[in-house]
C-alpha cells in the first residue's frame, strides 16, 4: 500500500505546484513584468519629451511644467522632418522591392523543382547569415564607385540586399502551408500558373504577406533612428528633443503593428492552417 500511496501523494504534490504555476495570478504577474520591461523606456521617453530643455536635468520623475517645446524643436528646428520623409521614402521603396521580388521567389521555392533548387535556396539564406558589419567596406566601395553614396537609392539597395532573403524565407514557409491542391484545382479550372498564383494562392497567403510586409517595413525605416543623433551637439545634448524625436519615430511602427496585429499573430504562430 505504501508504495502506491507514495506515488499518488507525489503526483498530487506535483499537481498542486503546477496548479499554482498556471494560476491566473502567476500568469498575470509574468505578463505584467514583460509589459513593464517593454513599456518603461517608452514611458520614460514620453515623459522626458514633455520636459523643458533645462527641466531634463532637474532629476524629477514628472515634468515640472509640461511643454511641447521639445517636439517643436525636434520637428521644425533641426530638419528632423526631412529624416522622417526620407524614412518613409526609403522604407516604402525598400519594402515594395523586397515584397515584389520576395513573394514570387518564395512561391517558386515552395512549389517548383528545378536543378539545384535546394542549393540555390541555401545560398539565398547564406547571404543573410553573413555578418552585416563585414559588408560595410564592400558596400562603401560599390556605392562610391557607382555614385550612389549618400543617395536614397543606395540605402534602398542595401536594405533590399539585407532583407530580401528573410522575406523569401518567410514567404516560402507560408506558401508551404497552403495545399498544392489549391494551385492544381485552379489550373484545372482554367488558370495559367501565373493566374493560379494571382487569383488563388496569393489571396490565400495574404496574411503571411502582411506579416512579411510588416516585418520588412519595420526593419527598413532606419533613417529616423539615425536622425535622432542630430540632437547630440558639440557641447551639449538636447535630451528633450531627442526623446521627442524618438517618440515620433515610434509612431509609424506602432501604427503598422496595430493595423496588422492579426496577421502578425498568424505569422508568429507559424502558418495559415485552419484559415
Amino acid at each position: 500500500m505504501s508504495r502506491a500511496r507514495f506515488g499518488v501523494d507525489r503526483y498530487r504534490r506535483r499537481q498542486r505546484v503546477w496548479n499554482f504555476v498556471e494560476s491566473p495570478y502567476v500568469v498575470h504577474a509574468v505578463l505584467f513584468l514583460a509589459v513593464f520591461f517593454i513599456i518603461t523606456p517608452l514611458v520614460w521617453d514620453l515623459v522626458t519629451s514633455l520636459k523643458t530643455r533645462e527641466g531634463v536635468l532637474a532629476l524629477t520623475y514628472l515634468p515640472q511644467d509640461p511643454t511641447l517645446a521639445a517636439y517643436e524643436r525636434a520637428l521644425f528646428d533641426r530638419g528632423f522632418w526631412q529624416a522622417v520623409v526620407n524614412s518613409v521614402i526609403v522604407a516604402s521603396a525598400s519594402t515594395a522591392v523586397v515584397m515584389l521580388l520576395g513573394t514570387p521567389a518564395g512561391y517558386v521555392f515552395s512549389r517548383f523543382r528545378f536543378p539545384f533548387d535546394n542549393a540555390v535556396f541555401v545560398f539565398v539564406l547564406f547571404t543573410r547569415l553573413f555578418p552585416p558589419i563585414g559588408l560595410v567596406t564592400p558596400y562603401y566601395r560599390i556605392m562610391t564607385s557607382t555614385g550612389l553614396q549618400n543617395t536614397k537609392v543606395g540605402i534602398v539597395i542595401a536594405n533590399v540586399y539585407l532583407w530580401l532573403p528573410l522575406v523569401i524565407y518567410i514567404m516560402r514557409n507560408f506558401f508551404i502551408t497552403i495545399p498544392q491542391a489549391l494551385d492544381e484545382a485552379a489550373r484545372v479550372d482554367g488558370c495559367t500558373k501565373v493566374q493560379a498564383f494571382r487569383h488563388i494562392v496569393f489571396p490565400v497567403v495574404l496574411p503571411g504577406f502582411a506579416f512579411a510586409f510588416t516585418v520588412s517595413t519595420d526593419l527598413n525605416s532606419m533613417t529616423i533612428p539615425v536622425a535622432t543623433f542630430l540632437f547630440v551637439g558639440d557641447t551639449s545634448i538636447d535630451w528633450a528633443a531627442m526623446t521627442a524625436a524618438a517618440v515620433v519615430a515610434v509612431i509609424p511602427s506602432a501604427l503598422v503593428v496595430v493595423f496588422f496585429q492579426r496577421y502578425i499573430v498568424v505569422g508568429m504562430t507559424g502558418g495559415l492552417k485552419g484559415e
Binding site: P179, L182, E184, A185, A186, R187, I200, P203, E275
Partner: peptide
Amino acid sequence: DPRERDIAMVFQSYALYPH
C-alpha cells in the same frame, strides 16, 4: 496545360478556395 485539356477535377481535399 491542364486548362487546355477541357477537364474538370474533384480533389480528395476538395481544394475549395478558402477566400
